[in-house]
């Protein structure tokens, strides 16, 4: 169902040029009394990779987790402002979080495969969303494993435990698991921070590949990585959005002094 609804990109559909897929207006987030995000306003485009960068504790992961409402799981979190996806306020009272998360997938910093077989890991999400038929399941699982460039490595041991995979393979399995249910947006929270350089390269290649089909928002610590894979970059500092723009501009000619200091490695 979801795949038939994938809209033409903003570039090919001039009527939609003004409306971004994700619109954040004046968003603030509080943990109890502390204001962790301060009046963030930003618009993210479809089928692009957007990178959130900034020093630790700057709120970039928190903002990412607002996009599929994972922050709901934490007690004491309060949100003000507006966050729209596809024109719909995702914090409206009648929004079903489950349905939202199905459309906004997520890959975590620490790879977290279920302690099940490789096959079952990918099948889990599919079964949740009503794919019961064995041959449909097989096809979708193969497709998503292919897409995440893991198929050749695991096709002979689909039914052995996912915990036996290497760190990089586990992370790609988590990506396969996320894309299997065909979300429209994929959130990635420092997906390569725990991986070695070779595994990191593979994950980065994968992200560039996935861009053709998905809108990707990625949080990263690694400036080179942001420069390599993202189209737009947002720089956060102490809960504020300092600068947002095309990646090339942010890295070569930032408007703000603090952005320049950060991307040139003077602090952070």
């Amino acid at each position: 169902m979801a795949e038939t609804l994938i809209a033409p990109t903003a570039a090919t559909n001039p009527a939609n040029a003004a409306a971004s897929l994700i619109e954040i207006e004046n968003l603030s987030l509080y943990y109890g009394a502390t204001k962790a995000l301060k009046n963030i306003s930003v618009k993210l485009e479809e089928k692009l990779v957007t990178a959130f960068i900034g020093p630790s504790g700057c709120g970039k992961s928190t903002l990412l987790r607002c996009l599929n409402r994972m922050n709901d799981l934490i007690d004491n979190v309060r949100i003000e402002g507006l966050m729209k996806i596809g024109g719909h306020d995702i914090y409206a009272a009648d929004v079903d979080v489950i349905e939202l998360r199905k459309r906004v997938g997520m890959v975590f910093q620490k790879s977290n495969p279920f302690p099940k077989s490789i096959y079952e890991n990918v099948a889990y999400g599919l079964r949740l969303h009503g794919v019961k038929n064995k041959s449909d399941l097989d096809a979708r699982i193969e497709q998503s494993l292919q897409q995440s460039a893991l198929w050749d490595e695991v096709k002979d041991r689909l039914h052995s435990s996912a915990l036996g995979l290497s760190g990089g393979q586990q992370q790609r399995l988590c990506i396969a698991r996320a894309i299997a249910i065909k979300p429209e947006i994929i959130l990635m929270d420092e997906p390569a921070s725990a991986l070695d350089p070779i595994a990191t390269t593979r994950v980065e290649d994968l992200i560039l590949d996935l861009k053709k089909e998905f809108t990707i928002v990625i949080v990263t610590h690694n400036m080179q990585q942001a420069a390599r894979i993202s189209d737009q970059t947002a720089f956060f500092y102490l809960g504020e959005l300092i600068e947002f723009g095309a990646t090339g501009k942010i890295f070569t000619n930032p408007a703000q002094k603090r952005t320049e200091d950060y991307v040139s490695g003077r602090f952070g």
Partner: peptide, 23 residues
Amino acid sequence: IPPGLREASLALGATKLETILKI
């Protein structure tokens, strides 16, 4: 049980009950 497993399941659009029962 690592909280990451619960998050992974919820991020896939599982309900809380499904996460508890299956994971």
